[in-house]
Design a protein around this nucleic acid. Structure first.
Lengths: 195, 195
DNA sequence: GTCTATAGGCAGATAGAC
DNA sequence: GTCTATCTGCCTATAGAC
């Protein structure tokens, strides 16, 4: 019973539908009408919950980022070694793709130029937070010896994020999750101590 | 004086403007009106050259893919070793990004679900052709010893494409080409013979 | 080839009844 | 909270004059 439950049931159902639409069609490819039809209501009623499309978009990213970071917390708590954590991290992306969706923020990154400013900031924040989490895990892995890499952990973290986002981006048109898995595996293999 | 010059000057100027718009705003984020304003004409006149937005989109991909493959032919002809060719390949992507654009087909891959079918097919073709080219270079590199990798060359090729597409996707919101360069470098470094 | 005029639809958003 | 009605604007596309 925490902060994220101050949304009425309707608001969160709106977010559910809008989230799927944005993840599959992009922010410029969905409308209030799409959401309304899916929910069996009229579009003006959506405006009661989210005054503008920009507000809806902001709420979308906020919830997505919060859940994403929660998942990362869960990985953290599992107490496995760092390499296993990186594997679990990649699996979070893979799970999104297996539901035939693009990462919400990856999708928004594509249409970045057309986004309202607050949404832009939130997208950047999402990537920054992911980068911080990954860099921490990487440095921990370098200490405990489960991971090996040259250069700055931040740079490696950025490469992992962009590698996984790109793997989702390209795998989706093919409708082929295995394509993602292969790319993800190669990214992780590059972080294993070289024998 | 070849096949690609059967377009009137106007048609190719339309393609120029539309290309930039799609690469920065996505297919659902640009309109005939945007192009028309930029060219100082009215939108109906665009319909004379490209009957529908779908046709314009198809022509866009066709020209982009043709030029892209030409660039790859140029790399091929330079006769450097395979690792150098892969570096040049990555630079093609980097050059696009430095013009503040996303790869046209990477952008279209994001909005894939909203594309007309012929455009979808053309996007897939683009990736397939890139994969073929890369796999050939990788196999050549494995033979001449300039490149080292485990597993299938096709899988490695796919990973390179998705890695570079993702690096562009994420670097663009940050307006930071260096971010791309770092990720691209790490991809290439993973293909250098391990000492 | 490019224009004006216009059709017909869908977008995001607001007003006001219930 | 959700509805109907409506506004304004932009969209793709066509007809027909020049």
């Amino acid at each position: 019973m925490a902060k994220q439950l101050d949304e009425s049931g309707t608001a969160s159902r709106i977010l559910d539908v809008a989230e799927e639409l944005v993840q599959t069609r992009g922010f410029d490819g969905f409308s209030y009408a799409h959401v309304a039809v899916e929910l069996g209501v009229t579009s003006p009623s959506l405006h009661y919950h989210f005054g503008s499309k920009a507000e809806l978009g902001e709420a979308l990213i906020e919830r997505y980022a919060a859940r994403f970071l929660e998942a990362l917390d869960g990985i953290e708590r599992d107490g496995a070694d760092s390499l296993a954590k990186l594997g679990a991290y990649a699996r979070v992306y893979g799970d999104v793709l297996r539901r035939r969706r693009m990462c919400l923020c990856g999708m928004l990154a594509a249409g970045y130029d057309t986004l309202p400013e607050k949404m832009r900031d939130a997208v950047i924040r999402f990537f920054d937070e992911n980068e911080r989490w990954l860099a921490r895990v990487l440095e921990e892995g370098a200490r405990d010896g489960s991971v090996a890499f040259g250069g700055d952990a931040r740079d490696v973290a950025q490469s992992i994020i962009s590698g996984l986002e790109g793997a989702m981006l390209v795998a989706r048109p093919y409708g082929d999750a295995a394509r993602f898995d292969v790319a993800a595996r190669r990214i992780l293999d590059g972080l294993v101590k070289r024998r």
